[in-house]
Simulated scan of single mutants.
Amino acid sequence: MTSETNTPLLEISDLVKHFTVRRRGGLWTSTATVKAVDGVSLNIDNGETLGLVGESGCGKSTVGKLIMRLSSLTGGRIVFDGRDVSHLGRSEMRPIRREMQMIFQDPVSALNPRMSVEEIVGEPLAIHDSRNHREHGAKIRKLLSTVGLANSHAHRFPHEFSGGQRQRIGIARALATQPKLIVCDEAVSALDVSIQAQIINLLQDLQEEFRLTYLFISHDLSVVRHISDRIAVMYLGRIVEIAEKKTLFAKPLHPYTQALLSSVPIPRPGARKERIVLAGDVPSPINPPSGCSFRTRCVKAMDVCAKIAPRLQHTPTGDLVSCHAVELSKQ
């Protein structure tokens, strides 16, 4: 689904999240800073699905939690629907939260085992729509039907459902307040492949019906390719490339994106493609490399890469990439 307006629903500028950790060494205890998110900037338009991909530990889930204000910002700015929500308090965020919801990775831990489905789905209504309490029962039944569950499921508990059904309950809960933005944090990674397809199709149908906007966080490029309009690639706390889905898969510019895409299996028997194997391990976010964070694993690394961190810049096609080698090739 594509954007209908030129005004982004969500604007993130130089988002930073650092964690302080303690390290023990003999008799001494020292502190270190984990740079989980280190200057992320991106926009999401109304009605768009932006996929956010990267290796485990790159900071993509932290970005989702920062957007939802489930974690405080170290720096940067978050503007949602024209409102700066970067540093709003709990009471100030409350009316805004009904417009931004989240679907979590693990549907087991995301649902309270002591609450029935009716109570789980109805909880957001009780918080944000307490004046219309008599109407909640009808709304809950309609939500369950919308996500493919029966009315008889309302009085059951999470342990009585399969993984896919639990995720449908989580989706119904997210829809309860009629949000504009839903952050899907690895929403299908814990499910079987056949169930993944059902949930992805459900999310797409719901987007069309309710005019939703998604930030879809995942490490599975095949899933992201299916659901996204644009894709942002993240490495060690930073965005290295943002492009339209077709452009990214047809002609990736950043060396890290090229390596990621080379690992995606081709669904054709006997088909082969050159695999790009990255050297070394992902550097520690406690002590990232100077300059470009990817340079220690990049075959195109130059002297400038160790000195200056590349900026995220527009390409002639209007996409964004952060790479000195790409910049030099355009000159």
Rank of each mutant, 00 (worst) to 15 (best):
M1D: 09
T7D: 15
T7V: 10
L10V: 02
H18N: 15
H18Q: 11
T20I: 14
V37R: 07
N43I: 00
I44R: 09
N46G: 03
C58N: 13
K60W: 12
V63L: 07
L66H: 12
M68G: 05
R69N: 03
G75S: 05
D81I: 00
D81F: 05
Q101M: 02
Q101A: 04
F104D: 12
S116V: 01
E118T: 02
E123N: 03
E123I: 00
L125M: 04
A126S: 14
N132G: 07
E135G: 15
L149H: 10
A150T: 13
S152F: 09
S152M: 09
E160M: 03
Q165P: 01
I171E: 13
A174Y: 11
L175R: 05
Q178R: 12
Q178D: 15
L181A: 04
I182G: 04
V183M: 03
D185N: 05
E186A: 00
A187N: 05
S189P: 05
D192F: 01
V193E: 09
S194A: 07
S194N: 08
N201R: 06
L203Q: 04
L206W: 13
L215H: 09
I231Y: 11
V233G: 10
I239K: 03
K246P: 00
T247L: 14
K251D: 15
P252W: 09
T257D: 15
A259C: 02
G270I: 01
R275D: 05
S293N: 09
R297M: 02
C298Q: 09
V321Y: 10
